[in-house]
Computed example of a mutant assay.
Amino acid sequence: MSDFVKEIEKPSRFVHSLARNVETIGAGQPQYKIRSRAPLRLGLAGGGTDVSPYSEDYGGAVLNLTIDRHAYTFIQPSDDWKIRFVASDLNINEAFPLDMEAIQDTRLPLHAAVYRRMVSEFGGGRPLAITVRTSVDAPAGSGLGSSSALVVALVEAFRALLELPLGPYEVAHLAFEIERIDLKLAGGKQDQYAASFGGINYLEFMAGDRVIVNPLRISRSVQNELETSLVTCFSGISRSSENIIDQQRQGMTEKKTSTLEGLHQLKSDAIEMKQALLRGNIMKMAEILERSWLAKKETASGVTTPEIERMMMAALDAGALAGKVSGAGGGGFIMFLVPPEKRVSVIRALNESGGHAEDLHLTTSGAESWICPMQNL
């Protein structure tokens, strides 16, 4: 159990008001829903150095930013005294009896893991008859940190539901523990912290689970130029990052030269990319992005594919400055830096090559939640 968990009073005083909220169903009393959302992210540089054991042995550094795609969670009392998990975007709807053991048999392990952890540690272990509904603005395996953003949105919704005194660091760390420890899913730490904090951040990862989030103060004109220079393209391939991350971790553990040299370069690129961004030097950022993509391909096989390389060439031929796959690689979204004047041409070329390209908008807000009276909807 984390130190911050030990300091929180259990069970929360809000469990009693939640019980009253559940018990008034059908009695004509006011009801409410909890809503939350957490943004998805693009990694500009350093991705992979946030994965243990590299971050433990050498210290990791990542520069990323959040975009106008989100993971959403909606919680409300269920009207049949069951535990319900719904993933609207996946068309999955599950119902379980009011029993913590019953949710083991689920097709939505992220929902169940967050429910189990939050109720067990902060709700006195008392099962709650609620419906937990989610949706994500990106397909699974997108490389935009969508799974972690979903876990952050779930944790944030339960934080609001149980009135827990958790800040963005605690929400991110708890989401990390649920994914990487409780569910034993392969991956690093950057996605949870990006989703929890939002904005443009330089993240440092150190031994002992120490993470420092450095929000970058970027002028409005530089932000506008960066936003107008970014293009994303969905490759059409939803991939599991687990195999690639396992290869990288094996290379780290075995001190494989190509893996370590690639990761050292990615870390150095994150530091240099931060300086280029602070100066508003998009051309320098593109130079670093190209170098990072070459280094990333050295960390594991499967990072790139013939389809990805074909789309890369289509974008570069249309005027893009540089590109790389977002996330671990193997599919998902590809991001490009382009001259703003050529953005439309690059998007057209990518779409003609079989991708789904579009521009994007940056966001400054991280995970957030709010309460909505049910009778208003």
Rank of each mutant, 00 (worst) to 15 (best):
L316S: 01
L289R: 11
I288S: 09
R291Q: 14
G323R: 04
G329M: 09
E298C: 09
L316F: 10
M285H: 10
R310M: 13
L321G: 03
A328H: 04
T304N: 15
E309W: 07
G319S: 10
I334T: 11
M311W: 08
M313I: 13
M313G: 07
A295L: 03
M273S: 15
V346G: 05
L294R: 14
G329S: 10
F336Q: 02
K342G: 02
R291F: 01
E341K: 07
R310L: 07
F333L: 05
V325M: 15
M311P: 04
R343A: 06
G331Q: 06
T299Y: 10
R310E: 08
E287H: 11
T299F: 03
K297G: 06
M273F: 15
I288E: 14
G329T: 08
L263W: 04
P306F: 11
A328N: 05
L263S: 00
E272L: 06
V344E: 14
A276D: 13
T299W: 09
G262F: 00
P340A: 09
A270F: 04
A320G: 07
G262H: 00
E309Q: 13
P306Q: 07
S292H: 01
V325N: 04
R348Q: 12
M313R: 12
N281R: 06
M283R: 15
M283L: 08
E290H: 15
L289F: 10
I271D: 10
I347D: 03
K324A: 08
D269Y: 06
G332P: 04
A314N: 01
A320R: 05
K297Y: 00
G330E: 08
L263K: 05
A328D: 14
T305N: 13
A320W: 01
P340Y: 13
I288T: 08
E261H: 09
A300I: 02
K342A: 04
P339C: 07
I347R: 02
E290Q: 15
E261N: 09
R343N: 02
Q265M: 06
M335V: 10
L263G: 00
D317M: 05
